[in-house]
């Protein structure tokens, strides 16, 4: 049940983020949409790794090494999402730097003012 809730939230968040990125005209608002979709993807991945009734993949006094296989959830999606979040910040920083460059060029953040690649 828990993972279904998180899964649904993540999927809806991806859709909302993409909607924002596709419909807004302000470049910064598009980037906000992309970060929302990013968070949504991370939620979906973590939700897929979750198993009901199990605990975090850390072997301490609560989870002895011997029965770790029966007590912990899947650690692989967590490792993937950890790196995805860090790279997500890098991508956001790049997008923001380019948005700033575009603003310097055209004195505007409106995407419809940039028509070079339009036909």
């Amino acid at each position: 049940m828990l993972s279904q809730i998180a899964l649904a939230t993540g999927f809806v968040l991806i859709l909302m983020g993409l909607y924002g990125a596709l419909t807004h005209h302000n470049i910064l608002r598009m980037i906000v949409g992309f970060t929302l979709a990013d968070t949504g993807v991370n939620l979906v991945l973590v939700a897929v790794g979750y198993m009901p009734g199990r605990t975090a993949p850390i072997m301490d006094s609560a989870v002895p090494v011997a029965d770790a296989s029966a007590r912990i959830i899947d650690p692989v999606p967590q490792a993937l999402v950890l790196t995805a979040i860090v790279i997500g910040l890098g991508v956001t920083a790049l997008m923001l730097a380019y948005a700033y460059r575009l603003f310097r060029m055209r004195r505007s953040l409106d995407i419809s003012k940039f028509t070079e690649l339009k036909w």
Binding site: P57, I58, M59, D60, V65, A68, S69, I72, D74, P75, V76, Q78, A79, L82
Partner: peptide
């Protein structure tokens, strides 16, 4: 995941399996 759960402690000595991965 089962491999990591069973062998992390012995092979790497780390408590946190995510860190070991």
């Amino acid at each position: 995941a089962a491999y990591y759960a069973a062998n992390t402690a012995e092979e790497t000595g780390a408590q946190n399996i995510v860190s070991a991965i």
